[in-house]
Amino acid sequence: MNALDQARRIIAEALALPTDLAPMDGSMETLPEWDSIGHVRIVLAVEAAIGRPLPPDAMLGAIDVPSVAALLD
Protein backbone atom coordinates (compact mmCIF):
# COMPACT_ATOMS: atom_id res chain seq x y z
CA MET A 1 0.00 0.00 0.00
CA ASN A 2 1.41 3.40 -0.92
CA ALA A 3 1.61 6.27 1.56
CA LEU A 4 -1.41 8.07 0.15
CA ASP A 5 -3.67 5.05 0.51
CA GLN A 6 -2.25 4.34 3.97
CA ALA A 7 -3.02 7.95 4.98
CA ARG A 8 -6.55 7.67 3.60
CA ARG A 9 -7.07 4.46 5.58
CA ILE A 10 -5.64 5.91 8.80
CA ILE A 11 -7.80 9.01 8.52
CA ALA A 12 -10.94 7.01 7.71
CA GLU A 13 -10.40 4.74 10.73
CA ALA A 14 -9.44 7.56 13.10
CA LEU A 15 -12.50 9.59 12.17
CA ALA A 16 -14.82 6.56 11.94
CA LEU A 17 -15.80 7.49 8.38
CA PRO A 18 -18.35 5.18 6.75
CA THR A 19 -15.84 4.35 3.97
CA ASP A 20 -12.54 2.42 4.19
CA LEU A 21 -10.60 5.25 2.59
CA ALA A 22 -10.92 8.99 3.28
CA PRO A 23 -11.50 11.06 0.14
CA MET A 24 -8.32 12.24 -1.59
CA ASP A 25 -9.28 15.87 -0.92
CA GLY A 26 -10.24 15.17 2.71
CA SER A 27 -8.86 17.74 5.14
CA MET A 28 -9.32 19.37 8.51
CA GLU A 29 -11.43 22.00 6.73
CA THR A 30 -13.64 19.69 4.67
CA LEU A 31 -14.29 16.71 6.96
CA PRO A 32 -16.68 17.60 9.82
CA GLU A 33 -15.53 14.45 11.63
CA TRP A 34 -11.95 15.82 11.83
CA ASP A 35 -12.37 17.36 15.28
CA SER A 36 -9.86 17.64 18.14
CA ILE A 37 -10.31 14.02 19.25
CA GLY A 38 -10.13 12.82 15.66
CA HIS A 39 -6.93 14.79 15.22
CA VAL A 40 -5.41 13.11 18.27
CA ARG A 41 -6.40 9.71 16.87
CA ILE A 42 -4.77 10.52 13.52
CA VAL A 43 -1.56 11.66 15.23
CA LEU A 44 -1.43 8.51 17.38
CA ALA A 45 -2.08 6.25 14.37
CA VAL A 46 0.70 7.91 12.38
CA GLU A 47 3.06 7.58 15.34
CA ALA A 48 2.19 3.88 15.64
CA ALA A 49 2.79 3.39 11.91
CA ILE A 50 6.19 5.08 11.86
CA GLY A 51 7.25 3.83 15.28
CA ARG A 52 8.23 7.14 16.83
CA PRO A 53 6.53 10.23 18.29
CA LEU A 54 5.81 13.14 16.00
CA PRO A 55 7.42 16.47 16.84
CA PRO A 56 4.96 19.38 17.24
CA ASP A 57 5.84 20.89 13.86
CA ALA A 58 4.84 17.62 12.17
CA MET A 59 1.58 17.49 14.15
CA LEU A 60 0.80 21.01 13.00
CA GLY A 61 1.44 20.01 9.41
CA ALA A 62 -1.02 17.11 9.47
CA ILE A 63 -3.98 18.91 7.97
CA ASP A 64 -5.09 16.78 5.00
CA VAL A 65 -4.51 13.49 3.18
CA PRO A 66 -1.30 14.47 1.34
CA SER A 67 0.32 15.96 4.45
CA VAL A 68 -0.48 12.86 6.52
CA ALA A 69 0.92 10.73 3.68
CA ALA A 70 4.11 12.79 3.75
CA LEU A 71 4.53 11.94 7.44
CA LEU A 72 4.26 8.23 6.60
CA ASP A 73 6.81 8.33 3.78
Partner: peptide, 13 residues
Protein backbone atom coordinates in the same frame (compact mmCIF):
# COMPACT_ATOMS: atom_id res chain seq x y z
CA UNK B 1 0.69 24.43 24.26
CA UNK B 2 3.00 21.64 25.28
CA UNK B 3 4.20 19.56 22.37
CA UNK B 4 2.24 16.38 23.17
CA UNK B 5 -1.12 18.12 23.35
CA UNK B 6 -2.32 17.59 19.77
CA UNK B 7 -5.94 18.41 20.65
CA UNK B 8 -5.03 21.84 21.95
CA UNK B 9 -2.84 22.57 18.93
CA UNK B 10 -5.77 21.58 16.71
CA UNK B 11 -8.04 24.01 18.54
CA UNK B 12 -5.70 26.94 17.97
CA UNK B 13 -5.13 26.01 14.32
Amino acid sequence: VHGRNAASMYNYQ
